[in-house]
C-alpha cells in the first residue's frame, strides 16, 4: 500500500528561507541549501518549496534553489509560487521539480490546470488552496492571502480535481505558523470530496497534530514548516512517533 507522507515545507523569498504567522510577519529562517541537505540526510519523504514573493528576481532564485536541490538530493521535489503559465511549469520541471503547485493562477486562469495536466500529466500538477475561516464560512484567498474570493475550499478542490489536478495542497491561513493543530474538519471534508491525494498544511506544532490528521482524516500527507524550523524536531523523530501509533510510513531499507 502507498504510505502516508510527512513533508517539510520551505517557504522562500528572494532565495532565503522564511516563516511567518498567518501569511505575515515573516522572519528569516536560514539558507535553503543547507536545509535541503539536512532534510535529505534525514530521509524526508518529499520537500515542498513555495516562493511567496512571486517577483522575477525571487523566481530566478527559486529555480536556482530547485536546481541545486535536484543536484544534491535524490528525493521528490514539489515547487510552487507565482506559477502562471505552462512555460512556468516547464521551467520548474526542467530545473528538477517533480510536481508543480499552481495556486492563484488556478483560479484566475481557468484552463491552466487542464492545459498543464494534458501537457505534463496530471500526476505533476498540484492545485494549491489557501483559505481563511472554517466550516461553511471558509473562503479561498489568492496572492498569498491578500485577495479574497467567494469560493469555498471544498467546491474549489472538487473543481480542480475535475480539471485534472493530480493532488490538492490545502493550506489554512488562519492556522499558519500558530502551531496549534491542523483544521481537521476542512482537511476531512476536502479529502472526502476529491478522488486525488490531499496534502494538508498549516498549524502543525506537535507530532500529535500530524497523527491526528493522518488518523482522523483521509489526507495522504501532512506538511509542516514551523514544526521542523523551530525546535528540536525533524522527520526522523516524526517518523518514529507516528510509527509507534501504527501509521503506515515508508520503509527505508
Amino acid at each position: 500500500m502507498v504510505k502516508k507522507r510527512v513533508i517539510p515545507v520551505l517557504l522562500l523569498k528572494d532565495g532565503r528561507m522564511v516563516k511567518g504567522r498567518q501569511f505575515k510577519d515573516y522572519r528569516d529562517t536560514g539558507d535553503p541549501k543547507s536545509a535541503v541537505r539536512i532534510y535529505n540526510a534525514q530521509d524526508a519523504d518529499e520537500l515542498v518549496f513555495l516562493d511567496i514573493q512571486a517577483s522575477l528576481q525571487s523566481r530566478g532564485a527559486l529555480v536556482e534553489i530547485v536546481r541545486n536541490a535536484a543536484t544534491e538530493s535524490f528525493m521528490p521535489l514539489t515547487v510552487g509560487g507565482g506559477v502562471t503559465s505552462t512555460d512556468d511549469v516547464r521551467e520548474l520541471l526542467r530545473a528538477g521539480a517533480d510536481k508543480v503547485v499552481i495556486t492563484t493562477a488556478a483560479v484566475k486562469q481557468p484552463g491552466l490546470i487542464r492545459a498543464a495536466a494534458e501537457m505534463f500529466g496530471a500526476q505533476c500538477v498540484v492545485a494549491g488552496i489557501d483559505y481563511r475561516g472554517s466550516g461553511a464560512d471558509a473562503r479561498v484567498w489568492l496572492h498569498c492571502g491578500t485577495e479574497e474570493t467567494s469560493h469555498h475550499p471544498v467546491a474549489l478542490a472538487k473543481s480542480f480535481a475535475e480539471q485534472g489536478a493530480g493532488e490538492i495542497f490545502l493550506n489554512s491561513i488562519d492556522r499558519d505558523g500558530c502551531m496549534e493543530g491542523y483544521d481537521l474538519e476542512m482537511a476531512a471534508q476536502v479529502a472526502d470530496a476529491v478522488p486525488v491525494p490531499v496534502i494538508v498544511c498549516g498549524g502543525a506544532g506537535h507530532f500529535m497534530h500530524l497523527a491526528e490528521a493522518l488518523q482522523q482524516t483521509a489526507v495522504s500527507a501532512v506538511a509542516c514548516a514551523s514544526l521542523f524550523h523551530f525546535g528540536d524536531n525533524n522527520p526522523i523523530r516524526a517518523r518514529s512517533y507516528l510509527r509507534n501509533l501504527k501509521i503506515p510510513l515508508r520503509v527505508l531499507k
Binding site: M1, V2, K3, K4, R5, D45, E46, A122, Q123, G166, E167, P195, V196, P197, A218, S220, A221, R250, V251, K253
Partner: peptide
C-alpha cells in the same frame, strides 16, 4: 480508499531475482 494518481512511497514485492534488483530487500 486508494487514490489516483498513485503518488508516494510504496512497498516492492519481488517476483523474481534479477541483477537490476540485487541488494534490494
Amino acid at each position: 480508499p486508494n487514490r489516483l494518481p498513485h503518488v508516494g512511497w510504496n512497498t516492492l514485492d519481488h517476483a523474481r531475482r534479477h541483477p537490476l534488483h540485487a541488494g534490494v530487500k
